[in-house]
């Protein structure tokens, strides 16, 4: 089947784990705890994110609604980022984690180009606490915690208990229960990546956020500031 991955897809393979996250969008309140917990856990610098929560308002006054859409690496079972990496710095773990070897990464950004979910970023070198920089990073599904029997940090703190984590190959796990009992969607299934972050009951406004650029002037001007800040820095020359 897939080539160039260090581990075969494990979804549904007996005796293997397939870690996955279910995000119950009915329960997400956009509190951003996940974003901050994740930044703290890894000393994630400003301007890059392992996880974000997109916000979208819809409707006309007085019938307005607000929708939240947490995003993170999908730990694809068929990850294109891994296949294209020239150094196997990014690799697929047999339990489904898609991980980085920082000491191998040359920051060629091929994997960023390959990921259809914008889940990857180049780590700035100026960090507060951790000294690793100038390499590509992304959400690790908190493998260092999961291996020790803990939930990922963003799941741990999720106020709405919207993020649920577990082994999809275990029929008794909560993620299995949720996925089998609810209608779930994954993002961009047509890309063949087999994403392992499942969303419960998104409505169209929520999934469309995945494909929308900033709408309000406030958001657009922030985007401009972001691109202006990055322009002329080592990468991104001229594109934005």
């Amino acid at each position: 089947m897939p080539v160039g991955l260090q581990a075969e897809p494990s979804l549904g393979v007996p005796g293997k784990k397939r870690w996955a996250m279910v995000i119950d969008l009915r329960r997400c309140i956009g509190c951003m705890s996940c974003v901050c917990a994740d930044k703290a856990e890894y000393d994630v610098p400003l301007g890059v994110w392992r996880t974000i929560v997109k916000v979208k308002d819809t409707g006309r006054y007085p019938n307005t609604k607000r929708h939240f859409m947490p995003r993170l690496c999908n730990h694809c079972d068929n990850p294109p980022c891994v296949r294209n990496c020239p150094t196997e710095a990014t690799y697929k773990h047999e339990d489904g984690f898609v991980l980085q070897r920082y000491d191998r990464c040359i920051a060629c950004r091929t994997c960023i180009a390959a990921c259809p979910y914008n889940a990857r970023h180049v780590l700035p070198k100026n960090r507060d606490r951790v000294r690793i920089g100038g390499v590509v990073d992304k959400c690790t599904f908190c493998n260092h915690r999961v291996e020790k029997g803990l939930t990922p940090a963003c799941v741990q703190t999720c106020l709405g208990r919207s993020r649920i984590f577990g082994d999809l190959n275990d029929p008794d796990s909560e993620v299995s229960h949720l996925v089998s009992r609810h209608k779930t969607v994954v993002l961009k299934p047509e890309k063949g990546t087999h994403p392992q972050v499942y969303y419960i009951k998104p409505d169209r406004a929520q999934t469309e956020q995945v494909f929308s650029s900033p709408q309000s002037s406030a958001a657009r001007s922030d985007a401009d500031a972001f691109y202006r800040h990055n322009r002329g820095s080592k990468f991104f020359s001229g594109v934005l």
Partner: peptide
């Protein structure tokens, strides 16, 4: 509140 953004960059620029 307005849209929070996790902005992304285009990885390949002029050099490439």
């Amino acid at each position: 509140m307005f849209e929070y953004m996790g902005y992304s960059i285009a990885p390949w620029g002029l050099d490439i």
